[in-house]
Simulated assay, not measured.
Amino acid sequence: MYNWISALADLQTRGEPCVLVTIIEELGSTPRNAGSKMVISASQTFDTIGGGHLEYKAMEIARQMLASGQQNTHLERFSLGASLGQCCGGVTVLLFEPMGQVQAQIAVFGAGHVGRALVPLLASLPCKVRWIDSREAEFPEHLPHGVRKIVAEEPLDEVDELPAGSYCIVMTHNHQLDLELSAAILKRNDFAYFGLIGSKTKRVKFEHRLRDRGFDSSTLQRMRCPMGIGEVKGKLPVEIAISIAGEIIATYNADFGQHTSRAEPIAKLLPASRRSQR
């Protein structure tokens, strides 16, 4: 049986999300002392915070957090006797910390020079990458961890397979394919980010053609073209890749930064008699 430290390291190596549960406060008779920890994944548990109904409730809460993709830490106070029916009768406060949550689903259309420079950068971030191209020979022999290679005769079909909230990057070898992918992504309009490689001139041409297909200005404004951080100059594939990766990081950090923790301060979760001692 793994202890929580070994389990956490193993799960993080495999990229499997989990929740670290810690007893941070205890009052009266409790099954384990403050500082005790356990790790809970979608299908397994490692170590223990004392068993019984408390541990069952901790597993239930942790798995709800995993299922919803919650990123914020969470505090929960349990009266072991009154609420959970345990004979201990004390009070325990648990801290739930999501670990290894995937923060972004990224689809990269195109395995050309820039794609080959970009994907390893993205793979080093907390994300999952779908790398899509019709030309199998363009992919490197070894793929970074967390990258799924998709050799698709019709890359356009892969747009329908993307989860809502995906980060879409279009940089294929064919301008007409870029246009068709752009139209399909904009039609869904449920992406977190959509970037199209190219110049301002390419954007003007694409906007004209997309307007002819019925896309309005507000939808077209969501398309990043040129994409990437303007301050990162250079035309080398790795320079362009760094610029694009930087913009992706800035985008998902801004998105996730909008979610603030609603956890109450620890003091409010403790019995009134204990609060006065703090």
Rank of each mutant, 00 (worst) to 15 (best):
C127H: 10
V93P: 12
T172N: 10
R135V: 07
A152S: 06
V151I: 01
H175N: 07
E161M: 13
A123K: 10
L179P: 12
V91K: 06
R148M: 13
V147D: 03
V151S: 01
D160V: 13
G165C: 03
A117T: 03
I106K: 05
P126R: 06
K149I: 00
E180G: 00
A104D: 04
G165Y: 04
Q176E: 15
E138W: 15
H142M: 14
L143W: 00
M99I: 15
L143E: 03
L179V: 08
W131V: 01
L125F: 10
H173A: 04
Q105L: 03
P98I: 05
R116D: 06
S134F: 12
T92L: 10
F96P: 01
L122F: 07
N174R: 07
P126E: 04
M99E: 05
G165E: 12
Q176I: 14
K128P: 11
I132N: 04
A111W: 07
M171Y: 07
Q103K: 14
L125G: 05
Q101S: 11
I106W: 09
L122C: 07
P120M: 03
C127K: 11
E158G: 05
G165I: 11
G146E: 01
A111P: 11
D178L: 04
V170G: 02
V129Y: 02
L156K: 01
H145A: 15
G112D: 03
I132V: 12
E97Q: 09
F96E: 04
V159S: 01
L94T: 09
P120R: 11
D178T: 03
G115E: 02
G110R: 02
S124K: 12
A111T: 04
L118Y: 12
Y167R: 03
V108S: 07
P98Y: 10
E158D: 13
R130Q: 09
G100T: 08
P140W: 11
A152M: 01
H173Y: 11
V114S: 06
E97V: 07
A137T: 14
L125D: 07
F139T: 03
P140A: 09
M99K: 15
A107C: 08
L177E: 02
K149G: 04
L121N: 11
N174Q: 10
E161Q: 15
V108T: 05
L162M: 01
F109T: 06
K149S: 03
S166Y: 00
V119R: 08
Q176F: 14
H145D: 14
H173Q: 10
C127M: 11
R148S: 11
V108C: 08
E141W: 13
A164Y: 10
H175R: 07
T92Y: 10
V91R: 00
L179E: 05
P163A: 04
L162K: 01
A152F: 02
P98C: 04
E136L: 09
L179Q: 02
D133I: 02
P140R: 08
D133F: 05
